[in-house]
Amino acid sequence: MSLSLEDVTRIALLSRIELSAGERENTREQLNGILGFIEQLQAVDTSGIAPMSHAVDVVQRLRPDIVTETDRRADFQALAPETEAGLYLVPQVIE
């Protein structure tokens, strides 16, 4: 599997990472190098093997339905690039 420049552009868009035209070719080569390396996984016969998503084989612990959090908006919004009237501001979202 080898990535084309269009593939790189699509992945970069999905990842929301801007790549200049110049960076794209370089990125393509590097990603293809890595993909070439992980390609060896394809040769392994894994039929009948269940995928392992977690390092431990236990089930989920659940939380009681209790409100434990208090208002920390001022602390949190002190970290934000842009806020107004308690809202985080971003460029206009068009639907």
């Binding site: 990535l3 990472i17 990603l31 890595i34 996984l41 394809q42 894994t46 093997i49 269940a50 995928p51």
Partner: peptide, 24 residues
């Protein structure tokens, strides 16, 4: 970018799922 690619439509089974099986 690599992570986005291996999870993307059409490649998930070949890469991500296969890697999870090998993990086992």
């Amino acid at each position: 970018l690599i992570g986005t690619y291996v999870l993307s439509h059409g490649y998930y089974d070949a890469y991500y799922l296969q890697a999870q099986k090998i993990r086992r």
